[in-house]
């Protein structure tokens, strides 16, 4: 009779210790806060842009006598507070502007991110007819970023705590919150890929159709491209390939820089030709969560160490 108890126990112990090491590296091993600080600033700028472009249409889109009346405000879900007048909409927009500036500057960003999430939900539920994916992604990012120490670097909070000199240093932070935004990003790419099951995506012509939908083109339809079968096939299947790669291969460290570059290129290209709201800029901010924090720290340290001109 062969005794398998001992080898099984050894295998179990080895697997457990490998799992512990992987979990530690993924959620607990600290790394410099630079990418998170940059993400916070860019996210604040997007919230500022979203809010100010909405502010000019408060009366038409959110007010008491808006294009979509109060009775059609989203009934689903919890209403944090309903915006039942033009004045209430103005207050929400005003506070969102303040929140965006606070997030950019890094003044109590966690608190302001929660405020941003609550207000975005209130404003967006006031008029669900104008919503797009970028709007939903904006509020999701606001909530997820609240689980991260976004004010750890490049922030008023750091300046107040450690003085002006500390502005150009970044502490090490635990990355567990960062994993959530990375998961959200991968989920977006995966389900964007998964849902594209139509014949136009399969036969490689979908991008031609997208670029000819006149009511969502931005800088005009690229005629040279929409009729070129080979290029359109490349762009259509390339989109699917990049979306799938960004779901899975982004986790492979060596491929990451190339994939982040491809992701930026994909969103830049879409944003130039197609109206997608703030979806593109937000996805690019999300991609920054995969940036190599140690590499950034080394680059910044090298620059700091260089003698300054007299």
């Amino acid at each position: 009779m062969v005794d398998i108890a001992a080898p099984t126990a050894t295998l179990f112990e080895r697997t457990r210790s490998q799992f512990d090491a992987a979990t530690h590296a993924l959620f607990l091993r600290k790394r410099p806060a630079w990418p998170l600080a940059i993400m916070r600033i860019l996210f604040g700028l997007v919230v500022f842009g979203w809010t100010t472009t909405m502010a000019v249409d408060v009366a038409s889109l959110l007010g008491s006598d808006a294009l979509v009346p109060l009775e059609f405000a989203s009934q689903g879900g919890w209403n944090w507070f309903a915006l039942e007048s033009t004045g209430a909409a103005w207050v929400a927009i005003g506070v969102l502007v303040i929140a965006s500036v606070a997030i950019i500057l890094g003044w109590r960003p966690t608190e302001w991110l929660v405020v941003t999430f609550v207000l975005l939900v209130a404003v967006q539920r006031r008029n669900p007819v104008i919503l797009n994916s970028g709007d939903v992604l904006l509020r999701n990012f606001a909530l997820i970023l609240a689980f991260m120490p976004t004010g750890a670097a490049l922030s008023v909070d750091r300046w107040r705590r450690h003085g002006r000199g500390a502005l150009w240093t970044a502490p090490d932070i635990a990355p567990w919150g960062l994993r959530l935004i990375q998961l959200q990003l991968c989920v977006v790419y995966f389900f964007a890929f998964w849902s594209k099951g139509g014949d136009l995506w399969h036969n490689g012509t979908a991008v031609s159709t997208v670029f000819r939908i006149d009511d969502i083109t931005r800088f005009g339809s690229p005629g040279w491209l929409t009729t070129n079968v080979v290029l359109i096939g490349l762009f259509t299947w390339g989109t699917l390939a990049i979306e799938l790669a960004l779901t899975t291969l982004l986790w492979a460290r060596r491929l990451r820089p190339v994939l982040i570059g491809l992701g930026f290129l994909l969103h830049f290209f879409i944003d130039v030709f197609v109206l997608v709201g703030f979806f593109g800029p937000l996805m690019m901010i999300g991609l920054l969560s995969f940036a190599d924090a140690d590499w950034l720290e080394r680059r910044i340290a090298t620059r700091r160490a260089r003698p300054q001109p007299a």
């Binding site: 689903g76 879900g77 919890w78 944090w80 999430f117 609550v118 975005l120 939900v121 967006q124 539920r125 994916s133 939903v136 509020r139 999701n140 909530l143 989920v187 977006v188 389900f191 964007a192 849902s195 594209k196 099951g197 139509g198 014949d199 136009l200 995506w201 979908a206 159709t209 997208v210 000819r212 939908i213 006149d214 009511d215 997608v276 979806f279």
Partner: peptide
């Protein structure tokens, strides 16, 4: 979802809209 943390990422799918 009720709190506003929603998910729906089907963009141009299953096919892009075939009308302008």
């Amino acid at each position: 979802v009720n709190a506003g943390f929603e998910q729906n990422w089907s963009v141009f799918s299953p096919n892009p809209r075939a009308q302008t």
